[in-house]
Design a protein around this nucleic acid. Sequence first.
DNA 1: TTATCGCCTTGACAATTATCAATCAAAAGG
DNA 2: CCTTTTGATTGATAATTGTCAAGGCGATAA
Lengths: 232, 232
Amino acid sequence: MPQSAYPEIRKLDLFAAMAEDHFQTLMRGAYVQNFPAHIDLIAEGEPSDFLHIVLSGSVDLFAQWNGRDTSMATVRPISTFILAATIREAPYLMSARTLEKSRIVLIPSQDVRAVFDIDANFARAIVTELAQRYRAVIKTQKDLKLRTSLERLANYILRQQKRAGGGPTFGLEFEKRRLASVLGMTPENLSRAFKGLDPYGVVVDGTRITIGSQTDLERFAKPNPLIDDFTT
Amino acid sequence: MPQSAYPEIRKLDLFAAMAEDHFQTLMRGAYVQNFPAHIDLIAEGEPSDFLHIVLSGSVDLFAQWNGRDTSMATVRPISTFILAATIREAPYLMSARTLEKSRIVLIPSQDVRAVFDIDANFARAIVTELAQRYRAVIKTQKDLKLRTSLERLANYILRQQKRAGGGPTFGLEFEKRRLASVLGMTPENLSRAFKGLDPYGVVVDGTRITIGSQTDLERFAKPNPLIDDFTT
DNA sequence: TTATCGCCTTGACAATTATCAATCAAAAGG
DNA sequence: CCTTTTGATTGATAATTGTCAAGGCGATAA
């Protein structure tokens, strides 16, 4: 793969502390691919042959059962996905597809496992990464089980506002049908949920959101760092 | 702590491969406590001072928000909980309480982190454990987002049947109100859901379940290893 | 044995969420 | 420019799930 991408990858927490020659081993076996939008990268149930790294663009992780499907997460640059499956040498639990034109690094899983066995710093970095992701999923589960869809939307809006800089007006990160799926509801229900936040000063104009009354919305949403803060 | 518990703990995947003196370090700082039933062990939001190991009895992990609460998981002997919080030195995301009289080992989190930094085998064991738990939570999330409560119950019954040995009659692992919370529904709804499985030959007698028609139930439940098999 | 307690169940009802069909609007393509 | 497509919205309706109140049933203790 082109060496130009090395420094960016090396800077990821996952790879920052490992020995240089081990990093080179991983990079030698890796390759970069450019994918157009809306391309399936992997399917749940398949063996986990590669650890993926998104260099640019974005990727949707989703799952299916009995004809239904749901968005589980969005992967944005620069970060990895399918780490747990790679480590456990187990089949993927989620499928992945590009949301837009994306540049993706593929590292053979067996290389990852081999280096993991001989590089303690890499192993420790993986622990930290996995622990962080585990906690993120637990938070999502609490969101799903403890809140109604209206409350989930309200808290999502507050999270997204913070991500976007904290101002009263900001854009959604993806299209509404996906947002609905991420939040565990139908697009119709999402549309009505936005209306339901009208009393709290939420104004929607296409993909643009304006929070008219921050305190009202927060009083309703009751955001909680143990659910909504994904940095800890 | 009493040495009698050492061998059992040592046998856990998490501790099996680490250096003996590191294991001794952990055990020296650890202590065992006996708790009666229905005692709060930890509360979400508190700093994660100890890694916990359940030696006997059982523990309920639950979470609360805005006056509501939900059961996230049950911990049975012999296994650990609060591993991710310990590793990340972050506050607990879940509270824990004993379900019955329980014997629990407490290992100071700083000891775990210290040994994790110097024992590569321990670090690797933690990776494996965390990856497995991460995948378990993803499966639960798929269960929640892709299935109705009736479908979740049907699949739970099939999973529990397998755990209990595979025969047509078996017992539930805990009281129904907790089962309802674990499955993400109210006790009333659970009660009606059991009735709703009547057409598939499910007979409920208190805590005793009998599956009259295995194939009918399976045809309805559509169990899937990528959701229901927690061993991979 | 009888009283009490906790849990489960049931009925009636309300809230939430999903489904289906139609329409609208904006983006993409010719 | 106009057509086609796609996603978003809306209305009507149905299914699902939750809430509240009452009653039942079995375990436990006096």
